[in-house]
Design a protein around this nucleic acid. Sequence first.
DNA 1: GTGGTCTAGACCACT
DNA 2: GTGGTCTAGACCACC
Lengths: 116, 116, 116, 116
Amino acid sequence: MEFKSNIPIYLQVAVDIKKQIVSGSILPGEKLPSTRELAAAYTINPNTVARIYNELESQGVSFTRRGLGTYVSEDAAIIRRLKQEMSDTLTDELINELRAIGCTKEEIIEKINKKF
Amino acid sequence: MEFKSNIPIYLQVAVDIKKQIVSGSILPGEKLPSTRELAAAYTINPNTVARIYNELESQGVSFTRRGLGTYVSEDAAIIRRLKQEMSDTLTDELINELRAIGCTKEEIIEKINKKF
Amino acid sequence: MEFKSNIPIYLQVAVDIKKQIVSGSILPGEKLPSTRELAAAYTINPNTVARIYNELESQGVSFTRRGLGTYVSEDAAIIRRLKQEMSDTLTDELINELRAIGCTKEEIIEKINKKF
Amino acid sequence: MEFKSNIPIYLQVAVDIKKQIVSGSILPGEKLPSTRELAAAYTINPNTVARIYNELESQGVSFTRRGLGTYVSEDAAIIRRLKQEMSDTLTDELINELRAIGCTKEEIIEKINKKF
DNA sequence: GTGGTCTAGACCACT
DNA sequence: GTGGTCTAGACCACC
């Protein structure tokens, strides 16, 4: 994965993991990679991974079992909320960018109907 | 403007200018800033500006008048095509992301109806 | 301030600051010490202070102005919620400890009536 | 049991034992563990245990029968006084904290009525 | 083995 | 000056 320079790595990776959770490629209750594994996978510092897992945990997306590892939350409501948030963000971006270049609401909806 | 590290600056600026053209903040036939002006505005190298104007001209978006400067094309069809291209690219990208996290077409359209 | 060994420093200091906010010795909107100042005051590492302010911010207790500093939230509802949380925690502790040594509810209430 | 770093271990263990006596999990007249047993139970030094029993005996909570061991006092008045002391100390501490964050007597009593 | 915490020191962007 | 991020390396508690 390549990182964008203007967004903190820990946020980019957190979003990446959240996408995998929301899309179902990581299941509720599933164990996430160990901090050292993930650090190696992204070639980042283990402390940065700790921060990522911290971020996820503070959002209720994951929880940790001491000495065992970090797990995805099994709470379906949280996963739903997460999907809601992420799709809202993406939709907002879509609307703003298209509006900036002068698209009307109808044009946008037409595009989506055609492209999806 | 902030540049992303993984995309050439000249492309990022070209897209930025094209957005302004497509949205109407720069009008057909209008004179674009001089190389030195644009270099100063974006705090980039004048060589990079030359590349930007090359890029725009090769797409038919602008043309140069020897000794006078660079002008936006007056051909409405080209501007329309440009808007079409840009909005398509944006829509494709974001729809892919939205699909990846499991959004249906109906969900997206509903969101747009609500937020626009 | 002396730290208890079994509780993370960043949590102890965060609680300490929250007490000051709830009790009114730090007012809503007031500027908190700079990270380096607080680090010196508690003789801890600036990184640990960053974590403390992070913790407070993620709880909505504070916010930061880039290049200016960290400020206590001006949202009265958040301060109220904070007081609620902290008094609940203390009351729970009081109840649990006294119950552990065999006090009845009536004894506890009598004590409070007498001591307060 | 976890020890706090800033309070002598012998005092922490003495309090722990007194809690058990006051709550009734250790009965009046009951034999307390031998020095070596208690040292093993808390993984502390036998010398520290001697100090603990000294502390208890000086408060009249326990007494030693030469060659037999240490026993909890059978004097109900002493146990009552002990309970009084311990619950007073605890209540004082926590009431101070609650007052410091601006809780009124009524709020605390209401909370206790709700939670107990 | 796991995550959690802390220090030290660096570089960045913003004001 | 401010906070924000990241790396490096250490030690701890839990399993």
